[in-house]
Design a protein around this nucleic acid. Structure first.
Lengths: 346, 346
DNA sequence: ATGAAAGCGCTAACAG
DNA sequence: CTGTTAGCGCTTTCAT
């Protein structure tokens, strides 16, 4: 006994069609192409649908067109407050466009990132890869084979959104230089991270221009506990090489270092100045409040989803005839001065 | 020209079937019911599939069975660090079971929560509703009409996971009483929140048993900025009624209050003691470090998804004949003593 | 402007 | 064991 209506299940397009005395395709059009229907029938269908509280089945809609209206956001560590804003911005932008956002935590590992990519490939229309731990070559392949936008990673020839580390690190270096610091150390984060390489390069360049020395310590896990080891390493560098200014890969590391320094009775900023990166939740109320590099990361999330939607809707660039310059969104980032930096000790 | 193979598109089950010289259903079985196939053909099919790098299309798989293997997690505020652990736990548990997790931010609003619920209803197999802002009646209807598990909200007759506020608040009250505090104030959070009502009720009861007074201030937005107003209200209560001990709805509020009190040169804990709730990121390094009520929220996320999966796989309780006692997971919660509490001023 | 019919890719009886 | 045959709910030509 097929087609038993009203049997508790959700109304389908056929139930509506029967109730309204029209064809299923007409019901379909009433929703997806309202203009191709006479106002009369359209209204009739819509009313009938409402009466049966009909809701199109998204899965069935996705099958013919191959579009699920779902996007995936991959982050290395959901627990890092840095990603909150990113997640929220991406989610909002996606929701505004009628898309659903799937969130995946890759646990700072390239292999877990690959696994998620594979698992979700058939389910989502595109990816936002935040701070990817994938190597550049692999990333390029992915970005070429499916709609994907990288955040905080530059991918040649593909749109992406990045934070302007050069600008930011220059500000940090100038700030420290103006306070009389001449020997800097960078507390490095994950080697696989583009941000880490980019920040270090930018800091080193800025330091050189200002005639400061800069050495690289680490890498350390980009977490609060990683900060303890980083602080100890910094203390050695301070004793041996006269380092007085620290710039950390991120705020988690900086906050962890601050705590370790306090535990070891090192006064910040009197003996050592420290600059963080990201301006995460907590950076303004740790002890002392952290001087850090701040960007509007929520906007990064919005921008990434925006680029992704554009790529999805764009007619795939069949010919290399008209290579539309891949958009690269560069977000400004600036120094937020608080109390973890001060005049260099003499 | 239908069925053109190898034309760039992903291989389908039919491509594999043709290449392997078997029926499509055999290919299907090779993956979903390997035991119903002769080892020989199974291996042959699997190899052919691998050669064509065939991957079953999850959308197509979902259509016949109506199962998408996707779950949704709704939270009032992604930005609240309290939810990090919840999100991560839920995501992990879901991934372990081969499910995908969709995250939605409801912006602390019941209507946005409803909207998301509607939008996702056809797409996911079930919901985890964290700290729902929906009213009890509406929540009950939802929980009855589709697989859904509430976290931090009790729903009569349905499984849910909650934190043991009674135990926690008793510990907080005893701690404060032992330090000589006799007048307490509760800094309330959102009125629509079950947690808020539950925490206040538990605190009031515990205070009564110990012979302390407890008054309720607020409600305040459960955010750091909300904490400023809360602190001011507390100051009035302190001056007028001799309140010396504060218990906040959550750590965000408590941290905000701490900052406001510092700005107004009120010494914590010398003049006022404050207890938070949740033990979020930052509670251990704010100034002074916050005494707070801590639960393993990541486990709450895992438990919620676990219950949800059980409900999804369970044969719907058609008859009320055998009403399986709905499981209620109650997570222990205990006081984490730090430096924001101390002896009552005399 | 509307209806009929052919799938989208996969699963699940039902035969053999 | 394996092939055949229907769909799952919706979209989309192609006719009319």
């Amino acid at each position: 006994m097929p087609h038993t209506p009203n049997s508790g299940r959700r109304a389908t397009i056929h139930d509506v069609a029967r109730a309204a005395g029209v064809a299923a395709s007409t019901v379909s059009r009433a929703f997806s192409h309202p203009d191709r229907l006479s106002p009369a029938t359209r209204q009739h269908v819509v009313e009938t649908a409402a009466r049966l509280s009909y809701r199109p089945n998204p899965v069935a809609q996705a099958l013919p067109g191959g579009r699920t209206r779902t996007l995936a956001l991959l982050v290395p560590d959901i627990t890092n407050p840095f990603f909150f804003g990113l997640i929220r911005g991406a989610e909002r932008r996606a929701a505004d466009a009628g898309y659903t956002l799937v969130l995946a935590d890759t646990g700072e590992s390239a292999s877990m990132e690959s696994t998620h990519l594979d698992r979700l490939a058939g389910t989502v229309d595109g990816f936002v890869l935040a701070s990817s731990r994938l190597e550049a070559a692999r990333l390029r392949v992915i970005v070429e084979s499916c709609p994907a936008i990288a955040v905080n990673t530059v991918v040649d020839g593909a749109p992406c959104v990045v934070i302007d580390h050069d600008q930011a690190m220059r500000q940090a270096a100038e700030h420290l230089a103006s306070l009389g610091h001449s020997r800097l150390a960078y507390l490095a984060g994950p080697a696989a991270s583009w941000s880490d390489r980019s920040r270090w390069r930018a800091l080193a360049a800025a330091a050189r221009r200002l005639g400061l020395s800069a050495t690289r310590l680490g890498p350390f896990p980009p977490t609060v506990v990683g900060g303890a080891a980083a602080a100890d390493a910094a203390l050695i560098a301070s004793a041996n090489d006269g380092v007085t200014g620290l710039v950390a890969y991120n705020d988690l590391l900086a906050i962890g270092a601050l705590r370790r320094l306090a535990d070891r009775d090192i006064r910040v900023p009197d003996q050592l100045s420290v600059v963080g990166c990201d301006d995460i939740f907590g950076a303004d109320f740790c002890q002392p409040p952290l001087t850090t590099l701040a960007a509007d990361i929520e906007q990064a999330g919005r921008a990434a989803v925006g680029l992704l939607l554009a790529e999805i809707d764009a007619p795939a660039p069949a010919d290399s005839d008209d290579p539309p310059a891949p958009e690269r969104v560069v977000l400004p980032c600036s120094l937020q001065v608080r109390e973890s930096t001060g005049p260099a000790p003499r």
